[in-house]
């Protein structure tokens, strides 16, 4: 029983990180139907910014987190402005290839300047590296911090999307960009804002992973990016609650499979479950099946 609870805690921490990345994927997808393959690399940049804030500028955890989120926000908006906006009316697959191009540029620019080697985050404060024991289940303070920060950020996001004017604009653009424009919504600004929010969350995820797993490298964004995308599709891409459910399911599934001793099969199991879900519900868990009209 303790073992199961232990794995649930681990899975929730892993899932929180996936959720932060998956939210950016799903918001961008919801608004411009683009699978933003560069999103995983924004997360990687976030991890590096956090690393340099802590080592070169001797910032604490919170300051580093905020710096990384700020830098990633600027980066996300810049990427959208330079690489995606000129392609607004192009076939979607062309934008997808552009996103892959941006992803390669980010990965290998980082590799050029900082090398391919793995770097480890500086040791954290005593509070962060501590842990406590609840009926035999060891919970690291760090895990509490990760889950806490993720949930807080998601609540803020939910508030922005549901309760504010800009959030309303975002929902309007994702339903029908042309009609939103006619209602006086600045579509380009709204899309930039979506990228800003998504990238900030990815930046936060980067720092959290750096602190949690203590190792970062320029290619670290590929696999979590892919997993987060899978999470977004799993829940129904374009839906914020769907991304959350998907991310936590995948996080729990991965830790579960690894804990049972099949870690070599981990990625395979994740994808197999994804395919089964898609076969049963072709638009993801929460997705609505819209009939195509002629």
């Amino acid at each position: 029983m303790e073992e199961v609870l232990q794995q649930v805690i681990n899975g929730l921490s892993q899932g929180s990180i996936y959720a932060l990345i998956a939210l950016g994927y799903t918001m961008v997808y919801g608004i411009i139907q683009l699978i933003n393959f560069a999103h995983g690399d924004v997360y990687m940049i976030g991890a590096f910014v956090g690393y340099f804030s802590m080592t070169s500028f001797h910032m604490g955890f919170v300051e580093a987190l905020i710096t990384a989120m700020a830098v990633c926000t600027v980066l996300g908006v810049t990427i959208e402005r330079i690489a995606y906006r000129p392609l607004r009316n192009s076939p979607r697959i062309a934008v997808l290839i552009t996103a892959i191009g941006v992803s390669l540029i980010l990965e290998y620019t980082m590799m050029y300047f900082f090398g391919a080697s793995v770097r480890s985050y500086p040791p954290q404060s005593a509070f962060m590296s501590g842990s406590f024991n609840v009926h035999g289940v060891v919970i690291k303070n760090m895990q509490v911090v990760i889950i806490g920060i993720s949930v807080t950020l998601m609540l803020i996001l939910q508030y922005i999307v549901k309760r504010t004017k800009v959030g309303k604009a975002m929902r309007a653009v994702s339903q029908d960009a042309e009609a939103a424009r006619l209602m006086g919504i600045n579509v380009d600004t709204t899309i930039s804002l979506t990228f800003a929010l998504g990238s900030a969350l990815a930046g936060a995820a980067g720092v959290l992973v750096g602190v949690y797993y203590n190792s970062i490298n320029p290619l670290m964004g590929i696999m979590p990016g892919l997993k987060a995308f899978v999470a977004a599709v799993f829940g129904g891409i374009g839906l914020i609650p769907g991304a959350l459910i998907g991310a936590y399911v995948i996080g729990l599934l991965e830790t579960g499979v690894a804990a049972l001793g099949y870690s070599l099969f981990r990625d395979g199991v994740v994808f197999a479950v994804l395919i089964i879900v898609l076969i049963v519900k072709p638009t993801g868990l929460l997705g609505k099946n819209t009939k195509e009209k002629v």
């Binding site: 392609l87 934008v95 290839i97 390669l104 050029y112």
Partner: peptide, 22 residues
């Protein structure tokens, strides 16, 4: 070798921005 993938990525972006149909 260090800049190869960066240039490759740039080519992809530039080609797609100016010729999205390939």
């Amino acid at each position: 070798p260090e800049l190869r993938m960066v240039i490759y990525g740039l080519i992809l972006v530039v080609v797609m921005v100016f010729r999205p149909q390939g």
